[in-house]
Simulated assay, not measured.
Amino acid sequence: MAIESGTWEMTSSDNYGEYLKAVGVGMIQRNLAEKAVPTEELTTGDGPWELSHTTQLKAWKVSFTLGEPFDQVTEDGRTAKSVFVRDGDKLIQIQKIGGDQSQVIRDYSPTGMTVTYAAKGITATRVFKRL
């Protein structure tokens, strides 16, 4: 399956709070993020791609060109250097904040998306259904 524009809603989450702790997100924001049920929207095309992440409390959007590093402000206000690359049905984001690095892999299927987060030996998984 090719990565296509669409909207997905989270249906399950495993170990996400521990991942957020590993990447330095504070306790209050971690607790709020763990309780939220996000929706993600991806817009693909010939120009920059856009990825938005929306919860009941917060929304963020990032525009990027595959393979080109860019500065990104994280949901908790930190500045990161990010790059997105495509590997088949997977959209892989490498994010660096200071000397730390994390990886987010979005694996798309016709009916959903599985997102795997990894940093400092901690892995989390969130499953989304396609809307």
Rank of each mutant, 00 (worst) to 15 (best):
F64P: 06
T7S: 15
T111K: 08
K90A: 12
P48E: 15
K21C: 10
S109D: 12
V23W: 13
S82F: 06
E9G: 04
K129P: 02
V62W: 01
R86V: 15
V73K: 09
E68H: 02
D76V: 03
E50W: 00
I28C: 00
P48Q: 09
A36M: 12
T44V: 15
L131C: 05
S82L: 03
I28W: 03
I92D: 04
T116M: 05
G24S: 07
A33V: 07
A33Y: 05
G121F: 03
V104F: 04
R126Q: 08
M1D: 10
P69L: 02
G99F: 08
Y16P: 06
G24M: 07
S63P: 05
V23Q: 10
I94H: 14
G67R: 12
K35P: 00
A2L: 01
T111I: 03
D107A: 15
Y117F: 15
E41M: 11
L91T: 10
V73R: 03
L91F: 11
E4R: 13
D46M: 06
V127K: 05
V62S: 05
S12C: 04
R106M: 07
K61S: 14
I3N: 12
V23T: 15
I92L: 12
V25W: 09
G45W: 13
F70L: 10
S82P: 01
D14M: 07
A124Y: 08
E4A: 11
G17F: 08
V115T: 05
I92H: 02
A59L: 00
V23A: 13
P110I: 02
Q95E: 15
W8I: 02
T7W: 11
G24N: 06
R30M: 02
E18G: 12
A118F: 09
T74N: 00
T39P: 05
A118W: 08
S13I: 02
S12H: 10
A118T: 15
R106W: 07
A36W: 02
K90Q: 14
A59V: 11
K21V: 06
E41T: 15
A80W: 08
M10E: 04
P48F: 01
K35A: 13
A118M: 02
T79Q: 11
F128H: 00
T7I: 13
W60S: 10
G99E: 14
G26R: 03
S5D: 12
F64C: 03
F64H: 06
G112S: 06
K61Q: 11
M27E: 09
L20P: 04
T125R: 09
S109F: 04
T65Y: 00
A36L: 07
S109M: 02
A80I: 12
A80L: 06
S12D: 09
D76F: 11
R126N: 08
Q29N: 08
E4V: 13
V127Y: 00
S63T: 09
D100E: 15
